[in-house]
């Protein structure tokens, strides 16, 4: 692969992430990795479902008493919107419009940071109430599930930021296009997991 090749929007391939063998391998490998991640999160969900509301005798905390849906709803909206903005970024990537792509990724990062801020606030709030990681099995499983998702958000954000900085001077080429594409796939996957966290942990936690 030659990094010096200059592309115009017209000579830029329609699927830059799959235009090289490396790109093809990376995309497929990443999808397969996401399959593994799916099972990983399933394990965390399963454990949460088994341990939710379980704690020492007479524990005061429960999903009903703790969760505040409006906050979770706003977080969901932020993450959903950031998913769309990263779609925009990929749209511009395919059009070989580097500046627009970077801008949309920046928007995505800002939205992601907003989500992360709210999550940290939420955790802080619970810990303040005395609902901690070590307080009960419920606490351990809740923080592990939601925290692992939060960790993924952090990794996703770091990935986007590193990509933006590393390539800010040199623009798009067939070497970094797959990297951008994978980062955006990762971001969508994070959103997919959150949809289930919102539904299964928060909404259904408050239900019965």
């Amino acid at each position: 692969m030659d990094l010096k090749t200059k592309f115009t929007p017209q000579s830029w391939p329609a699927h830059p992430e799959n235009a090289t063998l490396e790109g093809k391998n990376k995309t497929l490998g990443f999808w397969i990795f996401l399959g593994g991640e799916t099972v990983l999160f399933a394990t965390l969900f399963a454990t949460f479902l088994a341990l939710k509301n379980k704690g020492p005798n007479g524990m005061e905390f429960s999903t009903q008493s703790l969760f505040e849906l409006p906050l979770a709803f706003i977080m969901t909206m932020l993450l959903l919107t950031s998913s769309l903005t990263s779609v925009y970024a990929m749209y511009h990537m395919k059009n070989h419009n580097f500046k627009a792509m970077q801008a949309w990724i920046a928007v995505t990062v800002v939205l992601g940071l907003g989500f992360l801020g709210l999550e940290i606030y939420e955790f802080y709030h619970y810990v303040h109430l005395g609902f901690t990681f070590t307080q009960s099995a419920f606490g351990s499983s809740f923080y592990t599930l939601v925290g692992t998702h939060g960790l993924h958000v952090i990794i996703g954000l770091a990935w986007f930021i590193l990509l933006m900085l590393r390539n800010s001077k040199r623009g798009l080429n067939l070497y970094n296009a797959p990297k951008y594409y994978l980062a955006s796939l990762y971001w969508h996957f994070i959103d997919v997991v959150w949809v289930f966290i919102f539904t299964v942990v928060y909404l259904m936690g408050v239900l019965d």
């Binding site: 799959n18 497929l28 999808w31 397969i32 996401l34 399959g35 593994g36 799916t38 099972v39 999160f41 399933a42 394990t43 969900f45 399963a46 454990t47 479902l49 088994a50």
Partner: peptide
Amino acid sequence: GHGMAQFFMYSAAFIAFTMILAFITII
């Protein structure tokens, strides 16, 4: 061009389903 991605993700979803089912029934 996403056949393999779908294959692995659907398999993962299937295993995920089995596991969650087990954890809410026979834990």
